[in-house]
């Protein structure tokens, strides 16, 4: 046999693979209704001017395990918070918001900044997202970026 290097050796022992199911993070799934409810309460906080609370609520409830449309819905919620903080504050105040977040929330924020930058509505607001990115890593350092790239709990 000449091309023995091309044999699909994995086919010989199918039970030993890490399959997609094995890689699903061990966290509770989030339903579209739950994401919708979070979006509502975030909007309420924003209308009351509680910007930090709105940001924290949105970053505490990322739908790691759910369908793509729910993930997009939540990304839009986060985007709404970031945009409305921008409309009501000076860009130099972003750092204050970021430093009041927990380390877990900061990691999640960076994940959403990357995600939103890759979406059509985020691409239109490049300056806003890059502004948030700059102010966030200014406070947190490179850690959250490293975790965005390596975390299997994707947003």
């Amino acid at each position: 046999m000449d091309d023995w290097r091309r044999i699909d050796i994995d086919a010989l022992e199918p039970e030993n693979h890490l399959c997609k199911l094995d890689l699903i993070p061990q966290v509770d799934p989030v339903s579209p209704e739950q994401a919708q409810a979070v979006a509502q309460s975030v909007k309420q906080n924003l209308s009351l001017g509680k910007f930090l609370e709105a940001l924290q609520t949105a970053l505490d409830t990322p739908p790691y395990v759910s369908d793509e449309s729910t993930k997009v819905l939540h990304a839009e919620t986060v985007f709404e918070v970031l945009a409305s903080i921008k409309n009501n504050h000076n860009a130099s105040e972003y750092g204050n918001f970021v430093s009041q977040l927990s380390s877990e929330q900061q990691d999640t924020l960076i994940k959403y900044i990357y995600k939103i930058m890759g979406m059509p509505f985020g691409a239109k607001h490049g300056a806003l997202m890059l502004g948030w990115f700059e102010k966030t890593v200014d406070v947190t350092g490179m850690g959250p970026v490293v975790r965005f790239f390596s975390d299997r709990r994707t947003v």
């Binding site: 380390s103 490179m142 850690g143 490293v146 975790r147 390596s150």
Partner: peptide, 13 residues
């Protein structure tokens, strides 16, 4: 485990 301590760093891995 009696304790599981995990610290996040700001460094590359």
């Amino acid at each position: 485990p009696a304790a599981f301590v995990s610290i996040k760093t700001g460094y590359l891995p």
